[in-house]
C-alpha cells in the first residue's frame, strides 16, 4: 500500500540557506510518526512546506488518502487543509476573540458551503448546516476533553486547554493526517501524559495518522511507531524508537561530536 504522505527529495532554500536539504519522508496509514531534531533543524519549515505556507524550492509532495495519489506542491494552505492535512502551531494560534466552540466551528469551514445569501436568508439548508457544525464541534470538544470551556473566549483558557483546543480545531477539518507542532511544549508531566493518551485515542478511534514534532523525548519514545531525525535540514536517521536511541549519528547531533571537543 502506498504511503499516505510521501515527500521526495524536497529542498527549501531561503536565499543561500537550505533550511531543508533534499529530504525524503514517508508516512503510512495508521502510523504515529515523530519528526525530531535539534533546534533550527528545519522541522517547522518542513511542516510549513507541506501545508502550503511555504512553496518548496524543489522536490515533490504526494498524498494518497485513498487509492489515488495527488501532488500537493504549490497549493494554497486552505486547499491543502481541504485535501485532509490539518496542523497545529508551535506558538499557539487560536482565534482569541471567539469562543472555544466557535474556534472549532471554524475548522468545519472547508466541509461546509453556506454563502452570503444563505447567511442572510437563513434557509433550511443553512440552518441544517449550522446545526450540523454546532453538534459536530461540540462532540469534538467532548472527545478532546475540553467541553467544559465551550462558551469561554479562547484567550481565557488555561495553557494546556489552549493546546488541546488547537488539536480540536484541526480535527474539525476531517483530516486523514494530523500534523502536530510541539503539542507538549510548556506542559507539565501530568498534562503530557494525558496528551499521550489523547493522541493514541485519536489514532485508534478517529482513524487519523499522526506526524508530530516534539522535543519531549519521553513522549516521542513512548508514542511513536517511527521516528525521523533531521539535522541542518537533512535526514540523519529513521527507525523505531529502539533503533533511534542507539543510533550514533543521532547521539552526535544531539550531544555534539566528541572528537570536535578533543
Amino acid at each position: 500500500m502506498k504511503p499516505i504522505l510521501e515527500v521526495k527529495n524536497m529542498t527549501m532554500a531561503f536565499g543561500g540557506l537550505k533550511a531543508i536539504d533534499s529530504l525524503d519522508i514517508s508516512i503510512h496509514q495508521g502510523e504515529i510518526a515523530a519528526l525530531i531534531g535539534p533546534n533550527g533543524a528545519g522541522k517547522t519549515t518542513f511542516f510549513n512546506c507541506i501545508t502550503g505556507i511555504y512553496k518548496p524550492t524543489s522536490g515533490d509532495i504526494f498524498i494518497c488518502p485513498h487509492e489515488k495519489q495527488e501532488r500537493l506542491n504549490g497549493l494554497k494552505p486552505n486547499i491543502v487543509t481541504k485535501k485532509g492535512l490539518a496542523r497545529t502551531f508551535q506558538n499557539i494560534r487560536l482565534f482569541s476573540s471567539m469562543t472555544v466552540l466557535e474556534n472549532v466551528m471554524i475548522g468545519c469551514h472547508s466541509i461546509t458551503k453556506a454563502g452570503v445569501l444563505g447567511a442572510i436568508f437563513k434557509n433550511a439548508a443553512t440552518k441544517a448546516e449550522e446545526n450540523f457544525i454546532v453538534e459536530k464541534a461540540y462532540s469534538i470538544l467532548e472527545k478532546i476533553g475540553i467541553e467544559m470551556y465551550v462558551d469561554e473566549l479562547a484567550t481565557n483558557l488555561p495553557y494546556g486547554a489552549q493546546r488541546r483546543l488547537e488539536i480540536a480545531r484541526a480535527m474539525a477539518t476531517d483530516p486523514f493526517l494530523l500534523l502536530l507542532d510541539e503539542p507538549a511544549a510548556g506542559m507539565n508531566p501530568m498534562e503530557t501524559k494525558s496528551l499521550d493518551d489523547l493522541i493514541i485515542k485519536l489514532r485508534d478511534e478517529e482513524n487519523v495518522s499522526i506526524l508530530l514534532i516534539e522535543h519531549d523525548m519521553k513522549l516521542v519514545m513512548s508514542l511513536s511507531d517511527n521516528i525521523h531525525v533531521v539535522d541542518y535540514g537533512k535526514k540523519i536517521a529513521e527507525g523505531t524508537p529502539e533503533q533511534i536511541k542507539s543510533n550514533p549519528d543521532v547521539i552526535k547531533a544531539y550531544l555534539g561530536d566528541e572528537s570536535e571537543d578533543a
Binding site: 501545508t51 494554497k76 494552505p77 487543509t81 502551531f89
Partner: peptide
C-alpha cells in the same frame, strides 16, 4: 447580525484574529 453569526462572519473574525491559522483551517483568504 445574520452575517456576523454565520459561516462567513466567523471566517471574517478568524481572518482578523490570525491570518495564517485561518488559512490552515481551510478558509480561502
Amino acid at each position: 447580525n445574520r452575517l456576523e453569526n454565520s459561516r462567513i462572519g466567523r471566517a471574517w473574525i478568524a481572518l482578523k484574529d490570525d491570518e495564517i491559522a485561518c488559512q490552515a483551517m481551510g478558509i480561502d483568504k
